[in-house]
């Protein structure tokens, strides 16, 4: 993902705090139900600068430790952390920010917090 110009990429969308970018588990009467986060195969999601999320390289891959950049389409800030459970160093995406992850976090993203 370049730092300027229009791009298309597989995306993972969230508007909440994520303890782990791998996903989460829920206890159900029939056992543990695990949801794994993957970069989206599917639908077009337009980003505010004219770029968009589309099925492309990375589709179907795990989100954790596999992201190269992000776009904040929310009205709140999101912080991306190095480790699960908001551990390690972080990078802030302010509303409207569309940029690559810093070198310490590229392919080393494991959780995020919505401020």
């Amino acid at each position: 993902m370049q730092n300027s110009g229009v791009f298309y990429s597989s995306c993972f969308l969230t508007n909440k705090t994520e303890y782990s970018h791998e996903g989460y588990s829920v206890s159900t009467p029939s056992g543990l139900y695990t949801v794994l986060y993957q970069f989206d195969y599917g639908s077009d999601f337009e980003l505010h600068v004219g770029s968009a999320c589309r099925p492309s390289e990375g589709s179907g891959e795990s989100v954790k430790n596999n992201a190269a950049g992000g776009s904040n389409e929310d009205t709140a800030s999101h912080r991306v952390f190095y480790n699960t459970g908001y551990g390690g160093t972080y990078q802030t995406y302010y509303p409207g920010d569309i940029k690559n992850l810093i070198s310490a976090l590229k392919n080393e993203n494991a959780s995020s917090k919505r401020l």
């Binding site: 505010h48 009205t75 190095y82 390690g88 160093t89 972080y90 990078q91 802030t92 302010y94 509303p95 409207g96 920010d97 940029k99 810093i102 070198s103 310490a104 976090l105």
Partner: peptide, 26 residues
Amino acid sequence: CIGESRRQVPSPDITLAEELSGQSFT
């Protein structure tokens, strides 16, 4: 109005600081 709010209130300029923080962390 979202675009307008971004022009009126620019984001904190901390990407360099975060990058350097990441470098020392590594």
